[in-house]
Every structure is written in structure tokens, then in C-alpha cells.
Design a protein around this nucleic acid. Structure first.
Length: 489
RNA sequence: GGCGCGGUACCCAAGUGGUAAGGGAGAGGUCUGCAAAACCUUUAUGCGUCGGUUCGAUUCCGACCCGCGCCUCCA
């Protein structure tokens, strides 16, 4: 089977067929860097990451562009409220975004495009649109897109723009527009706001034009896939289509994929409800980065995901189970020989995972396949039916899994530490429940040695006391047949 | 009002016209100096409600109830 995805444009699940065989041109809407990203943003970004990883795993050569919107109304408003320049303000949150990407194990796209570095491309796109009469300039120097001239308008969001729907509100201030639905391509300069001198005059770009200009700049007139959060379907992506296709006369993006919003504790996340979280907030509360990534990955992207603290705990336990299995494969000792059933199991698991992800990125089903393997291989191990030569095949299958899900590497403690340092620097330590483990690896090893001595001399009281001491510092010990293993909680 | 999505065990969640994956949690057991890990057993005659189609529906159709999203530069 080949990769199937749900295409918002057609409203159907379709086979993904790229323009150039095994090369994919994709564009995903990145952050507007006006504040720290929240877990809702990161549901989308985590999905984009899973998708790119799976594409690469499937043999595609990726050309993925993500934008950073570093000029917009909110950035202008927030930066002036703080009395810092727009560039400086945006740079801080852009940096934070990159840090968050690393914390959540998100790969960097091949190209990261900043809006402010592509102003001339946007201006020339607007000039093209004006030449074709798809854009017009108003008295104050702003430019708008003429929706009436683009009959396909609404094809992505399935809106009939010829009729004004009842509930839709209209901004009456913008009387200069020919039609209330026309959207801004370019905003005339206002005192105190960032502005650029361009071929179409001074001002700053509208929201949508950057993505059209940058996507086409890096990927050509027609891209294979365009992704984003579901809220972007309208107006953002609809407008991108209008701008791009009006200018080029060609299809802008052949497939549109949209990630559903998440709920937090059953409700829409909002600051007023007090259920608004950034990954940093959660890490400071003691949750692991891998738990966040796992939870965000575990529900297929087209389904609403209810993000709860209970779910976060469950995710942590699930990741733990997978890591324990990995450790068993990596460090356990097994009898010589091979059991063909294990090779079959590994192969079947890899195929099931691939089939699940090819089926419109059904991550839940892919996870089920891995857990089936974990259980069966563990059982075989307990029964002495897991043999030395079986290990590589199982490791490979687990590696396949982690190429996409990326949760097995135990770097949570180190990542959390970074967040703690950030919190300290920002003076936010007050709300940090995260306890810093004050034991270095060497100290842990030293205590473990003491305990082993005690055990050898059958002084179990002493041994247990040491274990208790380590447990209090967040260190878990496991006495296995193959020796002692320890890990940080 | 228009368009759309969803309601599956204590929690998360997959799925199919033929009788309910997987994970977490709970209970019991095996193993262990004790733990941990792991394994085994167990927890939905039931898949929002009510009708209909069918030999048979959780899966198809209709109505209703509930939740959610977009229609406002919120991912």
C-alpha cells in the first residue's frame, strides 16, 4: 500500500502522489513569535514532525519549508508594550521556539523562512496581482485582494462567498475595501509601526502573503503538501490559495493537511479558563518532554485530542514500558541461537507499523503494533525463547518505531534541566515543582556500589536504606538477572 | 443561522456488516532477600439514545440528545 492522507481540499482520503517521484515539496505554517508556543501549537508541530519523519523513513527526499512570522499585529503590540524593538522582541521568542523544538525532539525543516527577510518577494507578488487586477491599492496605500475576481475562492474551506452568511460579522471600519470580504495584502504604514520601503510603496505585509511568497520562492509555483492547524483553513490557507493561484494560474498546493485542535481537560484551551499550558509550564511541573511528545503523538491528527494531566501520566508510563524493553534488548543476556518466531514477529511488526502510518498516519494503530511486539518478545524472553540472534531484528523494528516517534532516548532529565535554567534566568522558578536531582552520575554509581557491598554481606537493611536514599533523589534501581540497572525517574 | 467533526470499559484510544486492538490504572498470581522490571489471569453480551434496513449492526440509514471546531489575523 502507498501513503494515504486526508486532503482537506477534496475532503477525502487520497493516495499521496508527489510531482517528482520520491521527492516531496512541503510547506508547513510555523509560529508567529509573539510569545512562547503552547501545547496546542505543538500538537501541530509534533504532527508535522511525525509526518516528515515517516516520509523520510518511506524513502522520500524532503524539501520542507517552515515559516517564522516575525512581524504581525501582536508582535508590534507586545513589543511596543514592553518598549523593545520588533526585531529584538521577535528574536527572543523565535529562539525560544527553537529551544522548544529541541525539547520535543522536533527536527528542523530543510528551510526556515522569516517573513521579515522576504519582504521584497511579497511586494513583487502583490505587484503581480495588481497587474492582473487581482489586487488594488486604497487611498492610504494599503493593498487588498479582489475576491470577486477569483471565483474558486472558498474551495478549501467549502464556503460560498457569493452569499454573506448570517452569523458572519463584518468589520465596518474597513470601508475603503471594494468588498467587505477582500483581505489585506499589504498594510500602509502607521506611526510607530515597523515598515519597509518596497516597489509597491511603504508599509508592512498582511498576514497571508508571506506564506504564498515564501512557499513559492523555495518550492516553486506548485507544492505537494501544505500543512497547518485546522483553524488556518479559513481564512489563512484559503487566502494563500487565492493569492498564489491568481498570480501563477497554477495549482498552489496539491494536498492540504490540517491538524485538529486539542482540548485541555475537556475544554478549549484558553488563558481565561486557566488551562493554558506551554511545554515549559508542564516540564516545570515535573512532566517529561517525552511524555508530552508521546501524548501529542498518540492520537491520530485528525481527531480531537483531549490533553489531560492524567493522560500525561499515562503517556509517561507507556514510554517507560518501551524504554524498559529497549534496555532489555540492549543490555540483557540471552541464550545462543535464534528463534524464527522472533524474526517473524519483528518483520510483522514493522509491516503493521508502516501500514498503520500509511493509513492516513494512524499513530494509535502503529503504537498498538509496537506494544504487541513488546509483550510477545518480553514473554518469549521470560520463557527462554528469546535468543541472542533474535535481538538485532527486534532492535531494528524498535528503531523503525523510534525513527518516527522519537521517544526512546532518555534525555528527559537533561532537557528538563535546560528548562529549569531558563526558568531561573527568567525569574519563574516560583512555580517550578521540578526537583533538581542533586546527584551526579558518579555519586549515583558510588552509592550503588555501597549498596551492592551491603547486599553481598546480606545486610539488606543497609541496602534498602541506600535504595531509599537514591529513590528520594529520583533514581530507580533494578536488580535484574543480568546485573543492576539504574535510571532517573 | 451556515459548514464540519466526534460520542467505544475507571482513563486514553483503534476498529469492522458477522460478533469488541493497544496503552494506562485497579485486582489476583508467578518471579525476587525486599523491590523494580517482566509475564499470566482478570475488568464492555457492550460501542450516546430511540427507531429502521439486514440472517446478523457497534459498524449502514433516519430522528433525537450531548460535546467540539470553523464561519473574528486562535495551531
Amino acid at each position: 500500500m502507498a501513503l494515504q492522507i486526508f486532503n482537506t481540499l477534496s475532503g477525502r482520503v487520497e493516495e499521496l502522489k508527489t510531482l517528482a517521484d520520491k521527492r516531496i515539496r512541503m510547506y508547513s505554517c510555523g509560529p508567529t513569535v509573539y510569545d512562547y508556543g503552547h501545547i496546542g501549537n505543538f500538537r501541530t508541530f509534533v504532527f508535522v514532525d511525525l509526518f516528515r519523519r515517516f516520509l523520510r523513513h518511506s524513502g522520500y527526499q524532503l524539501n520542507h519549508v517552515m515559516n517564522i512570522t516575525d512581524v504581525d499585529d501582536k508582535i508590534i503590540r507586545n513589543s511596543s508594550a514592553k518598549g523593545v524593538g520588533v526585531r529584538e522582541y521577535a528574536a527572543k521568542y523565535e529562539q525560544a521556539f527553537f529551544e522548544d523544538m529541541e525539547i520535543l525532539s522536533l527536527e528542523k525543516p530543510e528551510e526556515i523562512a522569516r517573513a521579515t527577510e522576504h519582504i521584497p518577494e511579497m511586494a513583487s507578488l502583490i505587484a503581480r496581482l495588481q497587474k492582473k487586477d487581482f489586487a488594488y491599492k486604497t487611498e492610504d496605500g494599503s493593498y487588498y485582494f479582489r475576491i470577486a475576481k477569483f471565483p474558486q475562492y472558498g474551495k478549501l474551506s467549502k464556503k460560498d462567498m457569493t452569499a454573506i452568511s448570517d452569523g458572519a460579522r463584518v468589520d465596518l471600519d474597513e470601508y475603503e475595501k471594494d468588498n467587505v470580504r477582500d483581505f489585506a495584502l499589504w498594510k500602509s504604514p502607521k506611526p510607530g509601526e515597523a515598515k519597509w520601503e518596497t516597489e509597491i510603496g511603504p508599509g508592512r505585509p498582511g498576514w497571508h502573503i508571506e506564506c504564498s511568497a515564501m512557499a513559492m520562492e523555495y518550492l516553486g509555483d506548485t507544492l505537494d503538501v501544505h500543512l497547518g492547524g485546522e483553524d488556518l483553513i479559513f481564512p489563512h490557507h484559503e487566502n494563500e490559495i487565492a493569492q498564489s493561484e491568481a498570480a501563477t494560474g497554477k495549482t498552489f498546493a496539491r494536498y492540504w493537511m490540517h491538524v485538529r485542535f486539542l482540548l485541555v481537560e475537556g475544554q478549549k484551551m484558553s488563558k481565561s479558563l486557566g488551562n493554558f499550558y506551554t511545554p515549559r509550564d508542564l516540564i516545570l511541573k515535573g512532566h517529561k518532554p517525552s511524555s508530552i511528545r508521546y501524548l501529542l503523538s498518540s492520537v491520530p491528527y485528525q481527531k480531537q485530542l483531549n490533553f489531560t494531566f492524567d493522560g500525561l501520566k499515562q503517556a509517561a508510563n507507556s514510554v517507560e514500558r518501551l524504554r524498559n524493553f529497549k534496555a532489555r534488548l540492549d543490555t540483557g543476556r540471552f541464550p545462543a541461537g535464534s528463534n524464527p518466531e522472533m524474526e517473524t514477529l519483528a518483520k510483522a511488526t514493522r509491516e503493521k507499523m508502516r501500514a498503520a502510518l500509511e493509513d492516513a498516519m494512524n499513530t494509535a494503530q502503529a503504537l498498538a503494533a509496537v506494544f504487541d511486539m513488546v509483550r510477545e518478545a518480553n514473554a518469549a524472553g521470560d520463557n527462554g525463547k528469546l535468543l541472542r540472534d533474535d535481538i538485532p531484528a527486534l532492535q531494528e523494528a524498535l528503531g523503525d518505531f523510534d525513527e518516527v516517534f522519537a521517544v526512546l532516548e532518555d534525555d528527559d532529565a537533561q532537557k528538563s534541566k535546560q528548562v529549569l535554567q531558563w526558568a531561573r534566568a527568567e525569574g519563574r522558578l516560583a512555580d517550578a515543582a521540578l526537583a533538581e536531582s542533586n546527584l551526579s552520575d558518579a555519586e549515583v554509581e558510588r552509592l550503588i556500589e555501597q549498596r551492592q557491598h551491603a547486599r553481598k554481606s546480606r545486610d539488606f537493611a543497609k541496602a534498602d536504606a541506600v535504595r531509599k536514599q537514591l529513590a528520594d533523589a529520583g533514581i530507580i534501581l533494578e536488580d535484574t538477572k543480568d546485573g543492576l540497572r539504574w535510571k532517573r525517574k
